[in-house]
Simulated scan of single mutants.
Amino acid sequence: MEAFETILVVATLLTGAIWLLDKLFFAKRRAERGGLLDEEPVLVDYSRAFFPVLAIVLVLRSFVVEPYKIPTASMYPNLEIGDFILVNKFAYGLRLPINNHKFVALGEPKRGDVVVFHYPGYPCEVDGKIVRSGDRYCYQPETPVVNQNWIKRVIGLPGDRISFEDNTVSINGKPLAYQPLGAYADPRSGVPGAQLLKEELPGRPHEVLENLDAHVVSGEWVVPAGHYFVMGDNRDNSEDGRFWGVLPEKDLRGKAFLVWLNCSGWFCSNGFNPSRIGTRIR
C-alpha cells in the first residue's frame, strides 16, 4: 500500500511538472512555428491527460477516504478476512502522503474507534535508547519497522491505565462487563472453542471473541500523552498493544467506517459475501 502511495505521488508530480513546463516554455514556440514537426509531443499529451486524474485520486486518497483490505482474523467477529473497508482520512487531522506528517489537527480518536495505523514495531532498548524494530527481539538495532498498515480498536486513551487479566479488560481499575452471546463456530477466526461476548466498552459496546479456557497475555499498561492503547476484537488471535505496547499518535492513518465489499482470492475465487456490503464499522 505504501509503495502505491509513493508511486502515485511521484507520477502526479512528474506529469504535472511536464505539463507545466511545456505550457510555460514550449507550447508558445510550437504555436509560432506551426509546422507539422512542432505538434505537441506524445509525452506532453499523456501528461496533460493523466495529471488531473492522478491529482484527484491523490487528494481523495490522502485527505478524504482510502480503501484497505482486511487480510487477517484479528478483528473477528466485526471485520472478516476479505472485507474491503473505507477509512476516513480526515477524522484525526490532515496528513501528508508518504511521511504521514499531520499538518492540520481536526480531532482525536475516541474510545472504541476502529483505527488504521502504521505498525509501530516492538520497543527495544539499544545503547540506552528505546528504538522500534519490526522484529520483537531486536536482533539488529538498525532494522527498520516493517512498513505495514494494521487495524485495531482503541481501548486506552492518553492518561489511562489499562490492564488485561483473566480475559477481562480493566480501565483505570474498573473491569469491563461482558455479556455472553453463545458459541462462535466460524473456523476462519482461528480460535477453536471461541465464545462470542459483548464487551461493555464505555461509549462503544461491541462484540469480541475469546476462548475462555486459553492462556492469554496479561499485563498492565499506562498510556502516555500522544499515545493510544489498541487491541483486536479477536482476543486470542490478535498481535496488538498487549505485545508491542502503546501506539504513537503520529502513526495513525484514519478511522475505519464502512465495509464496501467482501471478496477473497483472485476474482473472488475463494468466496464472495454480498451480505457484508454496506456494513458499518462500529
Rank of each mutant, 00 (worst) to 15 (best):
K110P: 06
A17G: 10
V87L: 03
L94R: 04
L94S: 02
V126D: 09
R153I: 04
G35D: 15
H118E: 15
L106M: 14
L8Q: 05
H101I: 13
L54Y: 06
G134T: 00
G93H: 08
V87N: 00
L43V: 15
V126R: 11
R33L: 13
V64Q: 05
G107D: 04
L94K: 05
K69T: 11
A27R: 05
G107R: 05
E80T: 07
A49T: 11
P144R: 11
F63N: 06
Y122E: 11
T72M: 07
W150L: 13
D45M: 11
N149E: 11
E32Y: 02
A49D: 13
F63A: 10
F84D: 09
V154L: 08
W150G: 00
I130K: 15
L86V: 00
A55L: 15
T12I: 02
D45R: 13
L13Y: 07
N147G: 09
Y46W: 13
T15R: 10
F103Y: 12
S62E: 05
E32R: 15
P67L: 11
V145N: 05
T143Q: 14
W150V: 04
V59D: 14
Q140V: 14
V126N: 07
H101R: 15
L94D: 03
L14A: 12
P77C: 01
L43H: 08
T15C: 13
P97H: 05
V126P: 01
L79W: 01
S133N: 10
P77D: 05
E80R: 12
A49G: 14
N99Q: 09
E40T: 14
K23A: 14
L36E: 13
Y139K: 08
P144S: 10
D83K: 01
L37E: 03
I85C: 01
F103V: 06
I56N: 07
I56V: 15
R136C: 06
K152L: 07
A73P: 10
F84A: 07
E66M: 14
L14K: 08
V44Y: 01
S62D: 04
F90T: 08
L37N: 04
C138F: 03
V53D: 08
P109F: 01
G35E: 12
H118A: 14
A27L: 03
A11T: 08
F51P: 00
L21K: 07
P52G: 03
A49I: 09
D38C: 02
G134V: 00
L86S: 01
Y137C: 04
Y46S: 08
G82T: 01
Y76R: 07
P97S: 03
E125T: 15
N100D: 12
K23F: 14
R30M: 02
R33M: 12
Y122G: 06
F84G: 05
N99S: 06
V145F: 03
C124Q: 09
R33T: 11
R153K: 11
V65L: 09
V131G: 00
F84S: 10
G112K: 09
V57K: 10
T143I: 07
E80I: 08
V115Y: 03
N100K: 04
T143W: 09
P67F: 10
I7M: 14
L36C: 10
V154Q: 05
F25K: 14
K129M: 06
C124L: 08
L21C: 13
L14V: 12
C138K: 02
L94W: 13
P71E: 04
K102I: 06
P120W: 05
A17R: 04
